[in-house]
Design a protein around this nucleic acid. Structure first.
Lengths: 183, 183, 183, 183
DNA sequence: AATGAATGAGGCTTCATTCAT
DNA sequence: CATGAATGAAGCCTCATTCAT
């Protein structure tokens, strides 16, 4: 049911998607949603929470605590980009439809997002400390790295970049440029 | 009227915004929209067309045909970033609500977006030719440059980056890194 | 303006016709009606009054006070049928849209209709008195004569009966049969 | 629900009747109609189809294939007139509101009406063949017979003719006069 | 006399949701 | 757990009408 909702929300937006459309994708009646979710908003919240939780896990799993900052950044960006590309519909929903959440729900998601950013930020800070990264501003560069990855869901797939692998290779390279780790 | 609609769409999304809400912002009746726009979708189209047309103009005006690629890229990115930051609500609407447009309208917007990207792409190509830029792939780097700028409307303002000028300085620097014009 | 309204009302019915449609037929703005008629209902009333007044005049003019009942009935029916056929759109409006009139207006029309029926009824009565007509019931036969004529606007033109003249010849014959003046 | 709609349409016309009015007659909400009919027009079509189907059945049931044309015509007209009188509200709707139907629906109804007319026409033709009827034109007389019956819904009840039986007796007599079967 | 913009009311219909089954 | 019918609220939009111009 979440699958169906994700596709519908991704295509039309939360506000323009009706419970009937979601139900129709499942061949069920609109009322069938209610034993599972208390409301359309709760369904969105379930999707958003699961999605951001997954993204956080992906980033954390990709991190290599014992490796050097360059290898860590490459690993994180590669996996995060792949995930964004593979889950671009889901990503679109959980990035762009958050304003429809109720305040409490919105806050819960914000927490997960902060945690995800923190993983990247920590590696950036470490790279600066070790002198491998040269950046004007750690916050700004982290912002740009996250922005690049998150924005994938807006345009992917497009042109030559229609495979997770192609894209993650490009973005891993670009991320090293952004942190000034290429000479 | 477009102003009011932009704010409403930016806050709640097109699908979740009602014609009543837009009219309420203007202190008018919901019917007052109809002598000016044939439908809610036409209002969105007017906003989207105007916005993308403006963005294209901004980028073209910022270009310096006689300058060298580095100066041109800096100028374009600075102005584009400033515009995205200053118009982040409008930008959000014209970037994220496009799926609500009818096919014909959608296509018209797509054309303007391609033109905007082209301006950046041409400078990237020139920089490569002149040897000032070192990039793995012109298409991919252009994609990233545009992505970075367009995504501003999703998060701006945030943290230290809450002034167009601060942000454009950061992004001008980052863009040179992306094209490999920094050593 | 009445012409335009008649055509619109006849095609779509009073309730389904908008002031915009009427105005559009005249190439004018919807507001242009109001200097001439106080409301849509007043426009209908003007049409209905004029129409029923005309019909009454047609029937009275067709009557031949000095002729014998058979000649009179033939003349009346012929002219009335011709008028109904020639003005079938107008007739449709003034027969079928009366329920949309305000009570006072409705009553005014009812008076004209009664007068029209009276012209026919008087000839029927005279024919009975003179022994030329043999009818079971003057009221019933008058009802049927009027019914036949008034119903023309529902179906005319159709099949072979698409000329006022053809139809009036048929109906003159049939009316003599109804009053029992044929042997 | 069809009952309620028939009364409302008969009183005010289709275009002047609102879905709210129909629902109010049933003590239900305006939305209650939609699980049963897709639109107001579909409700009208259901009423029109059922009505014309019923009328056709009434006429066919009244026909007496083995009897002589005079008895057959009397039987058909009596039953048809009775039905028109008893169902004058329904008849009004299904005769006068047909222009509000969509083309496909309109055509379906037209077919049923032709079938109904055919039943009468066949008897007229038979009467002519057998020499019992003397008519100037079978098509014209059939037209008049149908016209007389169909028009009942416009004026019934009125004056002395406020009982189906009284009326059917009158019209059976008049129909014999129209076909020239009275001497 | 005619218009374009505006409006309050309300048009038809759809919405998310409920509830008896 | 799933449904079909129902609903109150509201969706977008159109209505007849007004009014300043």
């Amino acid at each position: 049911m979440r699958e169906a909702a994700i596709e519908a929300f991704a295509e039309n937006g939360y506000g323009s998607t009706t419970t009937r459309q979601i139900a129709a994708r499942l061949g069920m009646s609109p009322a069938a949603m209610y034993p599972h979710y208390r409301s359309k908003e709760e369904l969105l919240y379930a999707i958003a929470y699961e999605g951001h939780d997954l993204a956080l896990r992906v980033v954390r799993d990709a991190d290599l605590p014992d490796a050097d900052p360059i290898a860590r950044l490459i690993s994180i960006i590669r996996r995060f980009v792949e995930w964004q590309a593979q889950n671009h519909r889901r990503a679109r929903v959980i990035q762009y439809e958050l304003t429809a959440l109720e305040p409490d729900h919105y806050r819960a998601i914000t927490g997960l997002r902060r945690d995800t950013t923190k993983v990247v930020r920590d590696v950036v800070d470490l790279g600066i400390e070790s002198g491998q990264f040269t950046v004007p501003d750690a916050e700004g560069v982290t912002l740009a790295l996250m922005s690049l990855c998150v924005d994938i869901c807006r345009w992917y797939p497009s042109g030559r970049y229609n495979e997770p692998d192609t894209l993650s290779t490009l973005y891993a390279d670009l991320s090293l440029r952004l942190v000034g780790a290429v000479h």
